[in-house]
Amino acid sequence: MGEFWPVPDTLAFLAGTWRVERSVRDLASGTEGRFEGTTVFGPLDGGGLLHEESGTFVWHGVPRPAERTLRFLPGRRPGTADVTFADGRPFHDLDLTSGRHVTDHPCVADLYRGEFTVRDADRWRTLWRVRGPAKDLVLSTGYMREA
């Protein structure tokens, strides 16, 4: 399947600065939003990467500043990563060695299912499908490496 770009080392691939564009669709209400900004994967004390995302999220036509921080730690297998929230709670695993990875994150009664695909050395994307009693969302994010 030539549409995926295998990555020998997930953390090495992600390191650096990425331009981010995310669409958010609430399937229950039909509302759509958009995030545009930057994600920086910088060195983390003790190994791994600190993911710092910042930009503008537009929801119901109202732009607001938005940011989030995650930690990408060396995974259990070479070339993989374990992603945690900033406070250390587990989020999901990440293995881009084949160029594609699917993972789940249960959040209270909702289930987040993420699909990660690497397109080439400078582009990757995520697609999160969120289903449950509280949410019915699709979040699609494109990342493009900044020079």
Results as ranks from 00 to 15, higher is better:
14 L>S: 02
26 D>N: 08
14 L>V: 02
52 E>V: 10
45 D>E: 15
55 G>D: 13
58 V>R: 06
21 E>H: 13
15 A>W: 09
22 R>I: 04
53 E>M: 06
55 G>N: 13
28 A>H: 11
23 S>M: 13
54 S>C: 11
28 A>R: 15
29 S>I: 02
11 L>H: 00
46 G>Y: 12
12 A>K: 04
31 T>K: 12
22 R>C: 05
28 A>E: 04
25 R>C: 05
18 W>I: 02
20 V>E: 09
39 T>C: 09
46 G>C: 07
13 F>A: 01
42 G>W: 07
50 L>P: 02
33 G>A: 15
36 E>W: 08
27 L>V: 03
56 T>Y: 05
59 W>V: 11
15 A>T: 11
31 T>F: 08
40 V>N: 03
15 A>E: 09
62 V>Q: 15
41 F>W: 06
47 G>L: 12
30 G>Y: 09
39 T>F: 07
32 E>M: 11
35 F>D: 01
10 T>D: 00
54 S>L: 11
58 V>L: 08
42 G>L: 06
43 P>N: 12
13 F>S: 01
42 G>V: 06
62 V>H: 15
61 G>K: 10
12 A>E: 05
55 G>H: 12
11 L>I: 04
63 P>Q: 13
42 G>H: 03
44 L>N: 06
11 L>E: 01
32 E>H: 09
45 D>M: 13
9 D>C: 02
46 G>M: 12
63 P>E: 12
50 L>W: 03
41 F>H: 08
49 L>K: 01
61 G>S: 04
55 G>Q: 09
18 W>P: 00
50 L>V: 13
30 G>D: 07
50 L>T: 13
23 S>T: 15
11 L>W: 00
36 E>R: 15
28 A>G: 13
45 D>Q: 14
52 E>G: 06
61 G>D: 06
45 D>A: 15
28 A>Q: 11
28 A>T: 14
27 L>W: 10
11 L>Q: 02
44 L>D: 06
